[in-house]
């Protein structure tokens, strides 16, 4: 057959600066979304089902669930929805890429590491936000008189929660070189998130020492931030919660980007 390929347009100029960053960021969002295309619907369904499952399932513990409990659970579920993709799915995807050696190609693409991390954050938001909306809608439908009060703070609370969850996941994904260890760590994270962090139950019900441990970790503070933004409940030290979650997010972002660029 006749070869008709146009001559190869060899890259001559080095690309730097904000335009290069922005182009890489946009392209990587597309790359990640297309990579997940086959599973995006399934991911959304699982996210919605898990959120709705918590909202409805906790009601089964009670003959007549107190509205305060329903409100607590319903306003904790968004945190689960928002961090699940970034903190659990993300590291497992990277572990799969490393195990199949396809990570080398992705790593060889000329995209700034910060742009790549930011793109993944956007994808995690896309994966989590619809489930948050559906879970809250189901809660309102299921629990008559649920005193939800959505405030403008919901935007920074949800965005920061998803950011820190994603960055923790990226740090785990890239700081740990063994795919098997990464998978084990994410399993432990899921278990710890549901069993030992005060997201769906009050911190007062935990042993004091475990409550103190959680005060230094981000999940409890994420729950406080999100809950405060969705209710009229009074919260003390909300600024501390934002500071702790923000600090975790920043530190993990730095760790993740450094780990992405680390050469053994």
């Amino acid at each position: 057959m006749t070869t008709t390929a146009t001559l190869a347009p060899v890259s001559l100029e080095l690309r730097t600066g904000p335009r290069h960053w922005w182009a890489g960021f946009r392209s990587m969002i597309t790359w990640h979304l297309v990579s997940l295309r086959l599973w995006l619907v399934l991911l959304a369904v699982v996210q919605v089902l898990s959120g709705v499952g918590f909202v409805l399932g906790f009601g089964l513990f009670f003959e007549q669930i107190p509205l305060s409990v329903a409100l607590f659970v319903s306003t904790g579920v968004p945190v689960v929805n928002l961090v699940m993709t970034g903190m659990v799915l993300g590291p497992q995807l990277v572990a799969d890429q490393k195990a199949s050696h396809s990570f080398d190609f992705i790593h060889s693409l000329p995209v700034p590491h910060t742009a790549s991390a930011a793109a993944w954050y956007v994808v995690c938001l896309i994966g989590g936000l619809p489930a948050v909306a559906v879970s809250l809608a189901v809660a309102v439908w299921r629990y008559d008189g649920l005193p939800l009060a959505v405030t403008p703070d919901v935007a920074p609370a949800l965005l920061l929660t998803a950011f820190t969850g994603t960055m923790v996941g990226l740090a785990v994904a890239h700081a740990i070189t063994s795919p098997m260890v990464t998978r084990l760590v994410t399993q432990v994270l899921v278990f710890a998130m549901f069993a030992f962090t005060p997201i769906l139950f009050p911190v007062e019900q935990m042993p004091a020492w475990l409550g103190a441990v959680n005060s230094a970790l981000p999940l409890r503070h994420m729950a406080d931030m999100v809950r405060a933004s969705l209710t009229d409940l009074p919260f003390e030290n909300l600024a501390t919660s934002y500071a702790v979650v923000g600090a975790w997010g920043l530190v993990c972002a730095v760790l993740a980007v450094r780990a992405l660029g680390r050469r053994r």
């Binding site: 690309r15 297309v34 997940l36 295309r37 050696h101 396809s102 080398d104 190609f105 060889s108 693409l109």
Partner: peptide
């Protein structure tokens, strides 16, 4: 700069199942 100046086809198959 290396990532801009080099293009790479790894021995493993590309991760393009969904593409």
């Amino acid at each position: 700069i290396a990532r801009q100046l080099c293009s790479y086809l790894p021995q493993a198959q590309m991760p393009i199942d969904s593409f």
